[in-house]
């Protein structure tokens, strides 16, 4: 189990930041990802695996008028 923005999700070995973004259907491009508080650069979303029991924040910035 992991939490993403306070929501509980299943965990499996090898689950990446990108997998979580897809599972949550987070389409917005201006995201900031943190695993247990640690910042993950955008170009590492595919390769960064999330450990079990992690607390993940996918912060959405704002855009538009």
């Amino acid at each position: 189990m992991i939490t993403v923005n306070g929501i509980t999700l299943d965990w499996y070995e090898g689950k990446t930041v990108r997998d979580v973004i897809q599972e949550m259907n987070y389409l917005f491009p201006l995201l900031i990802a943190r695993i247990n508080g640690k910042l993950i650069p955008r170009n590492k979303y595919d390769s960064t695996e999330i450990p079990d029991k992690a607390s993940v924040d996918i912060i959405h910035l704002m855009s538009g008028g």
């Binding site: 923005n5 306070g6 987070y26 917005f28 924040d57 996918i58 912060i59 959405h60 910035l61 704002m62 538009g64 008028g65």
Partner: peptide, 16 residues
Amino acid sequence: QHDEAWLIFMDMVNKQ
């Protein structure tokens, strides 16, 4: 109008 504040992501999605 939302041009004073657009807080939906901060509030609803990020829970910040």
